[in-house]
Structure formats: C-alpha cells, structure tokens
Amino acid sequence: MQEFLQQMVNGLSLGAIYALIALGYTMVYGIIMLINFAHGDILMVGAYIGFFSVVVLGTNIFVAMAIAMIACAVLGVVIEKVAYRPLRNSTRIAALITAIGVSFFLEYTTIFFLTPNQRVYPAEAFPVTNYDVMGITLSSKDIFVFISAVVLMVILQYIIKRTKTGKAMRAVSLDKEAAMLMGISVDKTISITFAIGSALAAAAGVMIGVYYNSINPLMGIIPGLKAFVAAVLGGIGIIPGAMVGGFLMGILETLVSGYGSSLYRDAVAFGVLIIILLIKPTGLFGKNTGEKV
C-alpha cells in the first residue's frame, strides 16, 4: 500500500508536467487543428533558457522559470508566424509535416550551438529536501512541480474563462469566420494561444530539468509525445481533458515502470494512444462528430 502511495506521489508530479505540456497541444489543436510537433522542443528550449538563467545570471528557479516562459512565448509566436501561418489554408498533412520540420530545426539548431551533450541542472538552483510523510518520501521537487503546475493551470483557467482574450480564444476555436465577423482578430488570437501554450511548455521544461536533474537537446521529444497522448486521451481541443489526461498518463506510467518493466515505460503511452484512438478517437471528454456529405 505504501509502495502504491509512493508511486501515486511520483505519478502526480510527472502527471502535472504532462498536463502542462498537454495543455499547449490541446490549445493549439483546438484553435488551428494542428498537431504542433514542435511543442516538445519548445519545452526543451525553455529548459535550456532556465538552465542558463540559473547558471549565467544566477537567478533563482522561479525567476528562471518566468524568463523561460516569456522567451518561449515569443518563440512560439515567431514559429507560428513564420512556419504555420502561411499554411493555414493548406492540408492538415502539409501542416503536420511542417511541424515536424520545425521540430527538427529546434532540436538540431540547439545541438549545433550547444552540443548534443547532457547538462546537469545546477543543484544550487533548487536544494532538494526529502520529507517523510507516513512512510512516503515526499521530495521538495515533487512539491515544487505539483504546486507550480497547479498554479499555472488555475491561471490558465482564469484567462480562458474570465478574460476577453479567453473568450476570443474560445470563439476562434469554435468558428473562425464567425469570430472574425464579430470583430475578433483571428491572427492575434492564434498568436496569443501559441504564446500561452509555449509558456506552459517552457515551465514544464524547467520542471523537467529540476525533476530529472539533466537536460539535453532531444529531451523534449518523448515528454512531448506522451503529453500529446495525454491530450488525445482527454479529448484533443478540450482543456480540462488535457489536464485529466496528463495526470492519468503520469500515474499510469509510474505504475507500469514501478510494477512492470521500466523498458516498457515508453511503450505505455503509445499503447494508450492506440487503444483510445481505436475505441474513442475523440477522447474521454470528446463528442463525436460525423463528416458532412
């Protein structure tokens, strides 16, 4: 039982990270129907910016996270403008291939400038203390990750539900043309969506740096794919779905690597993906829509 609770604690921290990443996928998909393959790589860039902020500027981890979020928000907006906007009216396949291209670009430009080597996240940025709560080890890392993720999600919910920007985002994702006729700037709204999604990814990147202690230029691929699965699991395009999906994925993964083979850990995500796609492609929270003839 204790073992199980321990796994749950680990799963919740990991799940919080996946949920943050999944939110970016889901928001972008919801608004322009694009699987932003480069999303995981924005996370990687965020992790690096956080790293340099701590190492070079000597900031604490919270400032580092804020800097990473702002920088990646800008990066996200630029990527959308340069690579995705020209393709807005082309096929979804073309957009997906472009996203794969952007992903390559971020990964290998980083490798080119910063070498493919691992970097260890500075320990002084985040001193780790372990607390023992009823026999369960609760690390300050877990607490940091979980609380910051939840705070960010609450802020996101507030933005989407209560602000004018959020209203515009919901409107554009429902019907671009109608939103445009209502005086909403579609381009601006899409830019904001990318900015928010990328900022969340950057935060997740810094968290992964803290959580796993090391970063590398290809670190974004696997969490990116898993978070994508989480988004699909919850119903892509649906924001609460991404959160629930993220936590479910995190818990499932820690359970599998805890009780099963850790080698199969990465296959879990894809297994879940395929099962959900075959049984209910619209996800746990999704509604079915048919094609019009």
Partner: peptide, 19 residues
C-alpha cells in the same frame, strides 16, 4: 546537426512554397 537543420529547412520551405 547541419544535415538535420537542412532537412528541417527543406521540409518547411517545401511545404510552404510547394506543398
């Protein structure tokens, strides 16, 4: 790394200008 960056540029430009 350069090879992959080139791939990336090929993919994106081909999709934008000649999908």
């Amino acid at each position: 790394a350069i090879r992959m960056i080139l791939y990336a540029v090929i993919l994106v430009t081909v999709m934008i200008y000649r999908p």
